[in-house]
């Protein structure tokens, strides 16, 4: 064999292998994960029905989902996941569903936050309540990552969060555990969320709310707030008597303790 043909053959084989590699399927993802990815790409909510047996409860939940989601096809979709499917083990472990009562429906926001978990039964009201505002979903995602969420509600003419908030977040000691979420006060989509937090939508000053896992607002500051004030509030929340569960018989804290 001529050397030129040999070289040509090797180059051809290398080219074919390269093309084959380029067109090869990426590492396979489970159907559940694929549905999550697709919903996230489309900015949709995904309702994941996780079940062990295709029993009456599962069918009832599926039927409720079908009926409710048919009315809003552009906003949400659903997928079913069999809990014992080996392909879905990663998803089950990530959500910690091995000991959860089944069937269960999880509502997953486009940003990946779980905005509702409904074991055993589901109503159309549950579905609607799980579809929260983008600001709520962002806060929930931070909380679910076990982070302190600094929610800054900015009035129309204010461009950035208070300096103290930025300093607090930039501090290397706080950076990894803090999530900054910015919401516009005049955003009508966030009206309900802000009302839940007791924040006035017509505020003319920025409002900073501190949210702690697993989900409680430990304080809010209207106007400028310093890094020291935020640190102090966090310290108080972590050392309070009732947050540790040490409630007195007649009140949340024994006399003299806050």
């Amino acid at each position: 064999m001529r050397p030129s043909r040999l070289i040509l053959g090797i180059v051809g084989l290398w080219g074919w292998l390269s093309l084959a590699t380029m067109h090869a399927e990426p590492p396979s993802v489970s159907p559940g994960q694929a549905a999550l990815d697709a919903a996230a790409r489309q900015g949709q909510y995904l309702f994941v029905l996780v079940y062990k047996q295709d029993d009456a409860a599962t069918q009832a939940m599926k039927s409720t989902l079908d009926q409710a989601l048919a009315k809003m096809p552009s906003r949400a979709s659903m997928t079913s996941v069999w809990a014992n499917d080996p392909a879905e083990k990663g998803l089950m472990d990530r959500w910690g569903l091995s000991r959860t009562p089944m069937p269960i429906v999880l509502a997953v926001a486009p940003n990946g936050a779980i905005t509702g978990g409904f074991p055993l039964k589901l109503t159309e009201q549950d579905i609607h309540s799980a579809m929260v505002s983008p600001g709520t979903a962002a806060c929930l995602k931070g909380i679910q990552a076990r982070k302190l969420v600094l929610l800054c509600v900015l009035p129309p003419r204010v461009g950035q969060p208070p300096a103290g908030v930025r300093e607090f977040q930039a501090d290397p000691a706080n950076k990894a555990m803090t999530e900054l979420v910015i919401v516009r006060a005049d955003d009508s989509a966030e009206a309900g969320f802000l009302q839940t937090l007791g924040i006035n939508q017509s505020t003319t000053q920025p409002v900073t709310a501190m949210l702690l896992p697993p989900g409680s607002m430990i304080g809010s500051f209207t106007g400028e707030v310093t890094k020291a004030q935020l640190a102090e509030r966090l310290k108080v929340a972590q050392s309070g008597c009732c947050p540790g569960g040490n409630c007195g018989p007649n009140s949340c804290c024994p006399p003299g303790r806050k």
Partner: peptide
């Protein structure tokens, strides 16, 4: 983690 699945109501 599951406590934080309660939606906006948890706040």
């Amino acid at each position: 983690a599951k406590v934080a699945w309660g939606g906006a109501g948890i706040f």
